[in-house]
Design a protein around this nucleic acid. Structure first.
Length: 461
RNA sequence: GGCCUCGUGGCGGAGUGGUGACGCAGAGGACUGCAAAUCCUUGCACCCGAGUUCGAUUCUCGGCGAGGCCUCCA
C-alpha cells in the first residue's frame, strides 16, 4: 500500500516509518491505571491518544488484526493504604477488592465517556503473579537478579546497555540525589522485582517467600503473555520513560535474551495546570468524573466529546495547558459539526494522512473541521465526514428524537412561519423562544430558488 | 550535577531557507422584522544575540526563559 505510517520513537528520538512485525497481528501495549482513586484528566490523555492510534491501526491493518493490551495495576502500596483508610473494619483482601473494583469500574465509565474503545485485553496484575515469578526466576538463573534483605533485585550492572531508552548512563546519575540509596543494593540503580510482605500487606507465595511484585515486573509479564517477547508498540506517559519503561526493558530483554522489547516506544506529553504538571502527589488535578458530572470546572459539566476533542487539538507529544478557553473552543467546533452515522464510506485522505504523520491530530482536526463545513452545505460529503470523525473518535451522535415530538416541533415551526407571513412578530418570537427553552434551535434560511424563508431546526448541543 | 523536551499573533496551533497556514475569539459587512445560524472581508506573530547564506521564523553555536525525569506519577 502507498499509505505510510510514521511514528516518533523515543528509543531513537526520531520519526520512523512503522512496519509491524506481523501485519495480521499488530501488537500494542499501553501502561494503564493503578486503580486506587479517580482518574484525572492527565490520566485521560494516554487513554485518548492511544485509543486514536488504535483506531488508526485498525483502519490500516483491519479491525481484527490489532491487539491492544492495557493493564490494570491492582497491586500497589497506594492501594493498600487506600483500602486501610476507607475500609478499616474489613479484612485487608476484601477491602482491597472493594477499592480496586470500584476504581476500575469508574475508569471504564470515564474512558467510555471519552470515546475510547475497549482494548483487546485488559490484564490485571493480580491475575499474572505466576507469570511474574517465572520471569524473576529466569532473571536469577541468567545472572541478572539477586536476593538481598528479603527482596529480589535486578542487577543493573549485569546489563551492558542499560539506559538506552532514557539515554541515562547509570554512572553519570547523581545516585541518591533525592532518595537515599538502600544499603543492600549492589548498585544504586538496582530495582525491586519481588519484596516480602508483612501480615498486613497482600502477598502471594513464591520461591522467596510470601511477597508481592515490584512496580515494573507486571508489565514485562503481561506484555509477554498477551503480545509476545517482542512486540510493535509500547506507549505511556512521558514520566514513565525512567525508571518504569527503562526497567521493563531491562527485565524483558534480559529474561528473554532479546535485542528489543518493543520496536516503537511512544510517550505522550503532560496535561498541565498553570504551567505545571497535573499530578496526584501535587494535588493540582481535576478528575474526569468531576469534569463530566459536576460543576467544579468552569461552573458546569462538560461532555466527553468536548474533553476528547480538546485533547486532540494539541499534538500528543506537546504539553497541554488545561484551560476553560480550550474546552470552550472545542465545544464551539463540535457544535458546528453535523451529526451523522458511520456508513462504510472511506475517511478523507487529508485526515488519514495527518494521522499517519506521527498522529498529527491537530492537522486531522483542522481537516475534519473543513470537511464538516463542506458537509453542512453538501450532503454528499456527510458519509466521508462521518468516517473521518469516527477515525478520531469524535463523531457527533445523532440525537434520538421521538417521532411524535419531532412532528410536534414541525407543527410549531409551521405555525411560526404562518405568524411571520401575517407579520405577527410577537407571536412568532414567542414560539421561537418556547422552542429555544426546550433546547430546540431554529435556523432560518432562504430558499435559493424562490427566495422564501425556510426554517430548519436542531437540538442544541 | 546529569539527561530530555520546548519557546510562533488574544488563545489553540501547523509549516517552511525566500510571496508571513489554518481554527477559535475580536473588528467590519451581507442576510434578517429582530435574532440565531450562515456567508464575505479584516487587524495582530515567529524569545534574544552571533554565525552560515544573496536571503533565516526555518540551519549552527551561545544566551535567556519554561517544563519534565533522576522518588510514586499518564
Amino acid at each position: 500500500m502507498s499509505f505510510s505510517l510514521k511514528l516518533y520513537n523515543t528509543l531513537t528520538r526520531e520519526k520512523q516509518a512503522f512496519s509491524p512485525i506481523d501485519a495480521t497481528n499488530v501488537r500494542m501495549y499501553v501502561c494503564g491505571p493503578t486503580v486506587y482513586d479517580y482518574a484525572h484528566i492527565g490520566n485521560a490523555r494516554p487513554a485518548i491518544v492511544f485509543d486514536t492510534l488504535y483506531r488508526l491501526l485498525r483502519h490500516v491493518y483491519g479491525e481484527n488484526h490489532v491487539t491492544y493490551a492495557r493493564n490494570i495495576t491492582d497491586v500497589d502500596d497506594k492501594i493498600n493504604a487506600r483500602a486501610l483508610r476507607d475500609h478499616p473494619g474489613l479484612p485487608l483482601n476484601d477491602a482491597i477488592r472493594l477499592v480496586t473494583e470500584k476504581t476500575e469500574t469508574q475508569y471504564h465509565e470515564d474512558t467510555t465517556a471519552l470515546g475510547c474503545l475497549t482494548p483487546t485485553v485488559e490484564p490485571r496484575a493480580t491475575d499474572n503473579i505466576p507469570q511474574m515469578i517465572d520471569i524473576i526466576e529466569k532473571l536469577i538463573a541468567r545472572g541478572h537478579a539477586y536476593v538481598a534483605a528479603s527482596e529480589v533485585l535486578f542487577d543493573t550492572k549485569s546489563m551492558l546497555d542499560y539506559g538506552q531508552l532514557s539515554k541515562r548512563p547509570l554512572d553519570e546519575q547523581q545516585a541518591g540525589a533525592r532518595v537515599a540509596v538502600d544499603a543492600h543494593k549492589k548498585n544504586p540503580g538496582d530495582f525491586v522485582l519481588w519484596k516480602l510482605s508483612s501480615h498486613n500487606e497482600p502477598g502471594w507465595e513464591s520461591p522467596w517467600g510470601r511477597g508481592r511484585p515490584g512496580w515494573h515486573i507486571e508489565c514485562s509479564a503481561m506484555s509477554q503473555r498477551y503480545l509476545g517477547e517482542v512486540f510493535d508498540i509500547h506507549g505511556g506517559g512521558l514520566d514513565l520513560i525512567f525508571p518504569h519503561h527503562e526497567n521493563e526493558i531491562a527485565q524483558s530483554r534480559c529474561a528473554h535474551g532479546t535485542q528489543v522489547m518493543a520496536n516503537v516506544w511512544m510517550h505522550n506529553g503532560f496535561v498541565q495546570v498553570e504551567g505545571r504538571k497535573m499530578s496526584k502527589s501535587d494535588g493540582n488535578f481535576i478528575t474526569i468524573y468531576d469534569l463530566l458530572h459536576t460543576e467544579t470546572f468552569g461552573g458546569r459539566q462538560w461532555p466527553g466529546e468536548v474533553l476528547r476533542l480538546a485533547m486532540l487539538m494539541t499534538h500528543y507529544r506537546e504539553p497541554i495547558d488545561f484551560s476553560l478557553k480550550r474546552l470552550e473552543e472545542a465545544e464551539r467546533l463540535i457544535a458546528k459539526w453535523p451529526a451523522a452515522e458511520v456508513s462504510g464510506a472511506a475517511p478523507c485522505d487529508t485526515v488519514l494522512n495527518a494521522l499517519a504523520d506521527d498522529l498529527n491530530t491537530v492537522a486531522a482536526v483542522q481537516a475534519l473541521h473543513a470537511l464538516a463545513q463542506e458537509a453542512n452545505v453538501d450532503a454528499m460529503v456527510l458519509p466521508v465526514f462521518a468516517a473521518s470523525a469516527a477515525l478520531l473518535g469524535v463523531l457527533p451522535k445523532k440525537a434520538e428524537i421521538d417521532q411524535a415530538v419531532a412532528s410536534a416541533i414541525d407543527t410549531l415551526v409551521e405555525m411560526r412561519l404562518e405568524m411571520l407571513k401575517a407579520k405577527n412578530f410577537p407571536e412568532a418570537d414567542r414560539i421561537r423562544n418556547e422552542l429555544s427553552e426546550k433546547g430546540i434551535q431554529l435556523k432560518d434560511g432562504k430558499d435559493a430558488a424562490t427566495g422564501e424563508r425556510v426554517t430548519t431546526w436542531e437540538l442544541k448541543r
